[in-house]
Measured scan of single mutants.
Amino acid sequence: AREMGVIAAMRDGFGFIKCVDRDVRMFFHFSEILDGNQLHIADEVEFTVVPDMLSAQRNHAIRIKKLPKGTV
Rank of each mutant, 00 (worst) to 15 (best):
A1D: 10
A1N: 12
E3M: 12
E3C: 10
E3Y: 04
E3K: 08
E3R: 09
M4C: 12
V6F: 04
I7R: 01
I7D: 02
I7C: 00
A8I: 14
R11P: 01
R11M: 15
R11N: 15
R11E: 14
D12L: 04
D12W: 03
D12C: 05
G13V: 03
G13S: 13
G13M: 10
F14Y: 09
F14Q: 07
G15D: 06
G15Y: 05
F16A: 04
F16Y: 11
F16I: 07
I17A: 00
K18R: 13
K18C: 06
V20A: 11
D21W: 08
R22G: 06
R22F: 02
D23R: 12
V24E: 15
V24M: 09
R25W: 14
R25T: 14
R25D: 15
M26Y: 14
M26N: 07
F27E: 09
F27P: 15
F27Q: 13
F27C: 09
F27N: 04
F28C: 01
F28Y: 02
H29N: 09
H29C: 11
H29T: 10
H29D: 14
H29E: 15
F30K: 06
F30I: 08
E32L: 00
I33W: 06
I33M: 06
D35H: 04
D35N: 06
G36S: 07
G36P: 08
G36R: 08
G36A: 08
N37D: 12
Q38N: 15
H40D: 10
H40Q: 13
H40I: 06
A42H: 12
A42G: 14
D43T: 04
D43Y: 00
E44T: 03
V45W: 01
V45L: 02
E46D: 00
E46S: 09
E46T: 04
E46H: 02
F47C: 02
F47T: 01
T48I: 05
T48N: 12
T48W: 02
V49A: 09
V50R: 09
V50D: 06
V50F: 03
V50K: 10
V50L: 09
V50M: 11
P51M: 08
D52R: 07
D52S: 11
M53Q: 15
M53A: 15
M53R: 07
L54P: 14
L54C: 15
S55L: 09
S55G: 10
A56N: 04
A56H: 10
A56L: 12
A56P: 13
R58I: 12
R58V: 09
R58Y: 11
R58A: 13
N59Q: 14
N59D: 13
N59W: 08
N59L: 15
N59E: 11
N59V: 12
H60M: 11
I62S: 07
I62T: 14
I62G: 02
I62C: 09
I62Y: 06
R63A: 11
R63G: 13
K65I: 06
K65S: 05
K66H: 01
K66G: 04
K66Y: 00
L67Q: 01
P68N: 07
K69Q: 10
K69T: 15
K69C: 13
G70D: 05
G70M: 03
T71V: 07
T71M: 07
T71L: 04
T71R: 06
V72S: 06
V72A: 10
V72K: 05
